[in-house]
Design a protein around this nucleic acid. Structure first.
Lengths: 260, 260
DNA sequence: CCTTGAGGTTTACGTTACGTCAAGGTTTAT
DNA sequence: ATAAACCTTGACGTAACGTAAACCTCAAGG
């Protein structure tokens, strides 16, 4: 089947302008342009649009979507399964909001007062999405979906104070990283403190901590540009240094400097 | 309990900047400003923010939310019950999308091809929301929730062709309105044709048509500024004329010109 | 054959709901 | 006393379109 702009728009429920915009930003190019300049979409584009809408439903930004589906290692089927899980999470969030509404109604009708905190149950998706962005993509590939889901679930149930403590801890880690890096020695006291805090910080969201996973994670940090950018933003080479400090802390040998 | 910007932000999960913005546009003013110029929010503001977030969750725009909760006739409890229904609808929509993903996965794995149309099941909320904006607010007040819900349900199940036909019909109505209005006579042929088409158009979404409801509706058109703006956009006085044409068509007397 | 109406095109400016500085004042903790 | 962590008010930036202008193309009817 082939479709013009309007036809595909009607089929999918999006606006025609949206399709032109998607063409403009290179997110969804038509299969071809006919002799009079019309955009013509084929079956492949229909599927691609469907994928785009799934991602959009999850709240991803268009440039992120573009990156993902243009990635040569993009696996459509795996992506669909991931969608499936995330949509279920989204529904779970909706369930919590619905429960909050129910509770609020009962409160208004019954008179039993509600804690301010309770009033916002379910509205914290953004924090979860941040977590997802930081740890979702890559870790999903390495360790599978479960660990990310569990991490999100834990985050969701985290108390206000815990969350604040966690954010504070993260800041401390960055400060320690600067200090320890200045010492230049991954075995130094501040470096070991850094590694300890990094572990502590991970345990806020990891369901089961293990040395192997921790080591695997810092190893991945070094190889993944997103993570490297994140940990290098204060000091260049910070990611590398963090890895060595953690491996040292865990009593694992860095290949680079084995004994000494 | 009293909160500063950051505290309320952490409590509710929104960004501090968001709260300042809401103050700026007059959507959520702090209870008071303390001696050093800080915004201080009290319990009433906490509740109001919760309401705002409920509406935002449903996809309403901030100016619309402002209108609604500033309306002196705004009934918090009724609003909550309405939220409850709409959130459930939203969840139903999510369920449909989840079902689509499941189906897509099965298709990819099993090989049975999927209809292009099926691929977009669940993504048509916008049409429904438009319907809701046009007919939700006021009709909910007059006839209760059920009729609106039923109307939405009908729209949701409407086929592509029906929908197109309906949109086309709406356009015809506006053209007829112009023509009939020019004649100046609500009993004229084009005016009667107009009324007939208006009925036909309503029947696309109304579960049960009745003369009384039709008459009540056009009556309401005249008194509601949103509707008046809508039907007056081509010709001034069009709403009034439409009302008279319909009442005439239904064999009901307009008080203004009873016999003649 | 010509018109009309519904589609198509590009270009360009407007909008919503914030995010992100910048530059500075205030409060709290050490 | 000094820094850290708040707060303030601008002011500019942005994402993802909506909308309007000005023009081209195609199918159907008088």
């Amino acid at each position: 089947m082939e479709y013009t702009v309007k036809q595909l728009a009607q089929l999918s429920g999006v606006n025609g302008r949206t399709l032109r915009y998607y063409d403009q930003i290179g997110l969804l190019k038509p299969a071809r342009i006919n002799s009079s300049g019309y955009r013509i979409y084929g079956p492949k584009e229909v599927d691609r649009l469907q994928q785009i809408l799934f991602y959009r439903e999850l709240g991803l930004r268009l440039d992120a979507i573009k990156k993902i589906i243009n990635d040569p290692s993009y696996d459509e089927l795996a992506a669909l399964k991931s969608h499936y899980n995330q949509l279920k999470q989204k529904r779970a969030r909706l369930d919590r909001i619905i429960a909050t509404v129910e509770k609020t109604i009962l409160t208004k009708e019954g008179g039993k007062p509600m804690q301010d905190k309770e009033k916002f149950e379910g509205f914290k998706e953004k924090l979860i999405r941040d977590n997802e962005l930081k740890y979702g993509q890559e870790i999903r590939k390495k360790y599978g979906d479960e660990i990310v889901e569990a991490s999100n679930a834990k985050l969701r149930n985290m108390s206000q104070e815990d969350y604040q403590a966690m954010v504070k801890l993260e800041e401390e880690i960055f400060q320690l990283l600067e200090k320890a890096y200045a010492s230049g020695d991954p075995a130094s006291d501040p470096a070991q403190e850094l590694a300890r805090k990094h572990k502590e910080w991970l345990m806020y969201t990891w369901p089961h901590y293990s040395k192997e996973k921790h080591a695997g994670l810092v190893d991945m940090y070094v190889n993944d540009e997103q993570f490297t950018a994140y940990y290098d933003r204060k000091v260049k080479g910070g990611t590398q240094f963090l890895r060595e400090a953690v491996l040292n802390y865990l009593g694992m040998n860095t290949e680079k400097n084995s004994s000494k």
